[in-house]
Amino acid sequence: MIRLNDIWKAFHHNQVLKGINLEVQKGEVVVLLGPSGSGKSTLLRCINYLERADRGSIRIGDLEVDAAAVHKAEIAALRRKTTMVFQNYNLFRNKTAIENVMEGLTVVKRLPAAEARERSAQCLEKVGLGNRINYFPSQLSGGQQQRVGIARAMAMDPEVILFDEPTSSLDPEVVGGVLEVMKGLAKDGMTMIVVTHEMTFAQEVANQVAFMDDGVVVELGTPRQVFEQTRQDRTRVFLQRVRRDTVAPIGPAMPICATGANNSARAFQADMDPNIAGLP
């Protein structure tokens, strides 16, 4: 079980998270929705301490970390219970697909190389890349890279996998393949927290949907509750906008992909990434 308790985070004078509470049961899939800059990605990154929350506590399984008095060892322990799938895949560029998956197993879990290799091969097989294990990231398409990213995350056998807009950088025709892999994981009982704009995925796979705006969770419930019995106006406006964009011929919800204008790290990444920088 995961419990986020009153998480606050500011970048300089910009208050990005304003007291987030969220509880995720084992095996649940939670989708975080919300407009650009609403704090979804920051929240995700606070869970494994890629960003340090200013205040609040994070509980994963039997480990509870209080942001006000956190030790290095606790951060390390927290990171061993979580893994992350990134928008830009972030595969280790100097390692082949299978080495990417093995890295955490040999270095962090200290498995013998042969065992790590076998498990990594299985994971890559599972995401449909059994025939690409010796390719470098530069030799793989975006969709393939992201599936390696998912294999790398699941190989560690974490308590939760955090997905940070896993399909936002992908060409529309390969999004489906990545979502299929994620559905498979959910079916296998993996606990997942997913920031995405894929409404169909949220509707079909999520146990809970949280709509975030301006640093708070505005609405939380089952997909049916949030999408069909929407209570808050802010949620309604957002859903209308997203649905309109999704049916437009330019592709899946493109204008809201460039998230996190408030987050300097992400804004920097956006500058570097031609996929995002090219957006209107």
């Binding site: 890629l50 390390a76 990134f86 830009n88 972030n90 890295e103 790290a265 990444q269």
Partner: peptide, 15 residues
Amino acid sequence: IDKGQMEAALSVGMS
């Protein structure tokens, strides 16, 4: 080197 490389390393539990 892209900051994401270090973040990915941290995210699988590396120091």
